[in-house]
C-alpha cells in the first residue's frame, strides 16, 4: 500500500505504458476468443487475457478510473448475460426435437476456416470469453479489496484501492 502517487495508482511511467498497451492487450484477447476454432486459443484463454487487460488497468490507474470503463456492477451483469447467452444457445439447439447444445448452425466443412465456420462453436466461445473475463476481473477486484491475511489472522478491509 505504499508507492501510490496519484489516487492509488502507480507511477507515471507505468500509467503511460498502460495507456498505450491496454487496447492491444484487449484486441489480442478478443482475437484469441474469436479465432479459437481456427488457431490455438479459445474462450477461456482469451477471456483470461481480457481480464488481465482490466487488471493491468486497475493496478496502474487505480480502481476509481477503471470503474469508469468497467464497473463491478457492469462486470457482474455481463457475466450473468454471458452465462444466459450460453444457455440460450444450448436451448436453441433443442428447437425441432434435437438435443441440448446441438450444433444447429453447423458450418460448411469443406470451406476455408473462417469466423462463421463453426456454427454455435463461435457463439459459445464468445459466451465463455465474456463469462471468464468478467468473472476473473470480479474475482481480482474483490480479492484485492479484501486482502487475505496470511499472518496473525486479522482481516484488513482496505477501502482505498489500486496501490500495491
Amino acid at each position: 500500500m505504499s508507492g501510490g502517487t496519484h489516487q492509488g495508482g502507480m507511477s507515471l511511467i507505468v500509467r503511460t505504458v498502460t495507456r498505450w498497451l491496454k487496447a492491444f492487450i484487449l484486441l489480442f484477447g478478443i482475437y484469441v476468443v474469436l479465432y479459437g476454432h481456427v488457431s490455438p486459443g479459445g474462450g477461456f484463454a482469451g477471456g483470461v487475457v481480457i481480464a488481465c487487460a482490466y487488471i493491468l488497468l486497475t493496478l496502474a490507474e487505480g480502481r476509481e478510473r477503471t470503474a469508469r470503463l468497467l464497473s463491478e456492477r457492469l462486470a457482474a451483469v455481463l457475466a450473468v448475460a454471458g452465462l444466459l447467452f450460453f444457455l440460450g444457445v444450448g436451448l436453441a439447439g433443442m428447437v425441432g426435437g434435437r438435443a441440448f447444445l446441438d450444433n444447429f448452425l453447423v458450418g460448411d466443412s469443406g470451406a476455408e476456416p473462417a469466423l462463421a465456420s463453426g456454427g454455435i462453436i463461435e457463439l459459445c466461445e464468445i459466451a465463455i470469453g465474456i463469462i471468464v473475463s468478467m468473472s476473473l476481473f470480479l474475482a481480482f477486484a474483490v480479492l484485492s479489496r479484501f486482502r487475505v491475511s496470511l499472518g496473525d489472522g486479522d482481516e484488513t478491509a482496505t477501502g482505498e484501492g489500486g496501490a500495491s
Binding site: N103, P113, S117, G118
Partner: peptide, 14 residues
C-alpha cells in the same frame, strides 16, 4: 461434423 480446424475447440464446444 463441426467445420472447425482446431480439434480441441471442436471437442470442447461441440
Amino acid at each position: 461434423q463441426t467445420g472447425v480446424t482446431n480439434i480441441v475447440t471442436a471437442i470442447l464446444l461441440d
